[in-house]
Amino acid sequence: MSLNFKSPEADALVAELTRLTGESKTGAVMVALRERLEPARRERERQSLSDDLLAIGKLALEPVDRETKALAPTAA
């Protein structure tokens, strides 16, 4: 499958990168995509962890029935 850029700027950027690195267009695009994906994935994981910790914190603030050690029903 070949790469087909519909943007002249994208084509020019890939051409410049391949000229500077000696990589193929496919190789250059794959490396660039991996470099962008890595921090995006870390951010997604970080945000997910942050959301989980906030949910745990909110749960910890819920009143607990001292006899059953279960969360006490809250008034709506």
Rank of each mutant, 00 (worst) to 15 (best):
A70W: 07
T18V: 06
S7A: 01
T21P: 06
P73Y: 01
T74R: 09
L54G: 13
R34S: 10
E16G: 04
P39A: 11
T21F: 05
P63M: 06
K58S: 11
R34K: 10
E45K: 04
R42P: 00
Q47E: 09
V29T: 06
L3V: 00
S24K: 05
A12W: 01
L33C: 12
A10K: 00
V64E: 04
E23R: 11
R36Q: 15
L13C: 04
A12T: 03
R34E: 14
A60E: 10
I56Q: 13
A32Y: 12
G57A: 08
Q47I: 07
S50I: 06
T21V: 05
T21H: 02
A32T: 12
L53I: 12
S2G: 03
F5K: 00
T26S: 13
V29Q: 05
S48G: 14
V64F: 04
I56V: 12
R34F: 06
D51R: 13
P73G: 04
A76V: 11
S48P: 02
K69D: 12
E35M: 12
E16Y: 07
E23A: 13
T21C: 04
S24P: 01
G27R: 10
T21E: 02
G57T: 03
Q47F: 03
A10E: 01
R44C: 10
L20V: 13
G27F: 02
L13Y: 05
A70D: 11
V14L: 14
R42I: 05
V14R: 09
A60C: 07
P39M: 07
L37A: 15
K25P: 06
L3K: 00
L20W: 04
M1K: 01
R44F: 13
V64P: 01
P73Q: 01
G27M: 02
L13R: 15
A70M: 08
A70L: 13
E23S: 12
A75L: 09
R46L: 11
E43K: 08
R46S: 08
V14P: 05
G22S: 11
E62D: 09
K25I: 02
R34A: 15
